[in-house]
Every structure is written in structure tokens, then in C-alpha cells.
Design a protein around this nucleic acid. Structure first.
Lengths: 152, 152
DNA sequence: CACAATCCGTGGACGCGATCGACCTGAGCC
DNA sequence: GGCTCAGGTCGATCGCGTCCACGGATTGTG
């Protein structure tokens, strides 16, 4: 991970569809060299995926909720996790410090669907209680932050 | 937005670097037709961006926090928002229903940087208090959910 | 020190993909 | 029926992706 790798990562975070030729021009290498570097970034797991970011309303997912989960004292955290994993509405899942073991970001089409999701969560073995907050609007999301070179 | 557009969106959410030729094969159209459709999806705002998803630790952002913000009764929400907008550590910003007006997702390199961020947030005019939760681990994040065709 | 091995790059070649323009077809409308 | 328009296909051109052979710097070693 040198400075050129960081530049490549930053460029691809801004626009994942840049051609290798364009990346090469930006970082001052040849296209094959960039191709190889990006390949290594992918296989080493630095770059996990390339995703199109879509307006959620346009695909029928207009309701965003953030849900805190308190675990049962007797529950198995891994079982709870697996139960969450198969719920497609849960887009993000963080394991947290604090009373609430998990914080989930979920997206659904309607409030009714959100209600059903919450019921399912509360019924999940190992879940003691849930606390749901509704996002009235998303000001921004997953904004890539500018990278700074690590102290040389 | 017909079924083919939805397929294109779903394919690009899974892999933003698919070629137009490959997309064309998948949806059963010609490459120029796909090119035009995708162009329209972009300019109509359905597709907002193409981003490489990067392992945060690899770029020195190993600490993730979720921060609830309670606003001052006298504060101006827009001013608070603008103050948040210029803090690059804040990757996501949701305007919420409930006592906490905002929920922020922030990423920093160290706990010390998180401390500084929280201090800055508390000093921001219009902010009455903050409540910070630290993510011990991210189980998954921004998982694209499978699209279902809207009821025809 | 000389040498070999390795890493990381370049340049050339070739086939595929992106993209443009011309043309075709079906639906909606006078 | 005939116009118009939207949205597609086809064909051609040009640039890009990708493979390969080669070269220079760096490092480890007898």
C-alpha cells in the first residue's frame, strides 16, 4: 500500500467505473501496471466490491430505520446474528459497545413493512427488546472521506 | 423504470464495473440499447454514483462510531447541518424523528480522533448534547437488498 | 564485489468493447 | 392511412483491456 495504491483507491471510491487507461493517466503509470495494482488491491481485500449507489426511493425503499437491539442475557450472539443475516431489509449491522448489542440500519418500502420487521426482530430468540428510530430524511450516506497519506 | 431497468440497477448494484456488453447479454438487449438506458438512469438520478467499497482498516479508518445529536431549542437545523457537512469524518447523516434530531455515522483512525470529533460536535452552535456508541465490529454494511418487481 | 533472483515497471500486439450514425419497427394520434 | 416519436438493431470505427516479452532497480548471497 504505497501512495499510488492510495490514489487508486481514492479515485475508485469516487468513481468505480473509471477505465484502467484513465486511472493510469491520473497516477502516471501505464495501463497494465494499474491493472495489476488494482487486481492486487482486490484480491488482498482492500477493495471489497464495486457498487452502483442508487436512489432508494426509486427502487421502492423509501423508509429508512435505525434499530437498536438489546440481547437476552441467555441468548447466543452468533444465533442472533444469523437470524439478522437472512433478513434482507437489514442493510447494515454493527456490533456495538453498550446496552444495545447491535445497531441495524434497515430499509423497507412502507411503514407497514417496518412494523412487520420489528415484530420479527422482537420474536427472534435471543432478542430482549428493540428500539427503533425512523429517518425522516437522509442528508447524505457513505460519503467517502478524503484519504491522507500515512505519516512517512 | 420497467423490468429491464430494474435488472440493470440490480446488476450494477452487485458489480458496478460490469461492461455494457456484459449487461446487454444479461438483460437480452444490444450494447447500445443498454448504454442508453444506463445513461438515462444516471441522468434521472436513479443511479447516483459508482463507488469502490473499501476495507476501512486498510485506509486507516479503523474506528466506527454512531452518534446521536440533540438539538438546542433555539438552534437552526440548517446551520447545524452545514457544520456537520464540513466534517469529513461524518460519512452518513440522517435526520431523525425523536429526541435526537440527527444520527451520524462517523469513521476515524483512533479513539483519540473520535474524542476530538465529539468535542467539536458538542461545541457546534445548535447542538445541545451528543450520545456516542462505538461499533466494536461491522458485521456487514450497505448490503444491497434484492429488488422485487413492483406489482404489475 | 559479482551474480542471481525478484519485483515492478514499460511497450507492443491483438481482440473485444464502447460508442456513433444510419436505419427499422411498432404505438399513438390526426 | 400516414406522421411522428421512442426505442430498438446493425455495422463500423476507434480506443481500451489484457497478455506477453523484455528491462532496470533492489536485495540477498557466495
Amino acid at each position: 500500500m504505497d501512495a499510488i495504491d492510495l490514489s487508486l483507491v481514492e479515485l475508485l471510491r469516487g468513481n468505480a467505473r473509471l477505465s484502467y487507461a484513465e486511472l493510469a493517466r491520473q497516477v502516471g503509470l501505464s495501463a497494465p501496471a494499474v491493472h495489476e495494482r488494482v487486481g492486487k488491491l482486490e484480491s488482498s481485500g482492500v477493495i471489497r466490491a464495486y457498487r452502483a449507489e442508487v436512489e432508494p426511493e426509486a427502487i421502492g425503499l423509501g423508509v429508512t430505520a435505525l434499530i437498536g437491539i438489546v440481547e437476552d442475557s441467555g441468548g447466543d450472539t452468533d444465533d442472533v446474528l444469523e437470524a439478522f443475516r437472512v433478513m434482507p431489509e437489514i442493510e447494515s449491522c454493527y456490533f456495538m459497545a453498550g446496552v444495545e448489542s447491535f445497531l441495524l440500519k434497515a430499509r423497507v418500502g412502507t411503514i407497514a413493512e417496518l412494523e412487520q420487521l420489528i415484530v420479527r426482530l422482537n420474536r427472534t430468540p435471543g432478542v430482549a427488546s428493540t428500539r427503533t428510530g425512523i429517518a425522516l430524511s437522509t442528508k447524505w450516506e457513505n460519503r467517502p472521506q478524503p484519504l491522507e497519506l500515512p505519516p512517512a
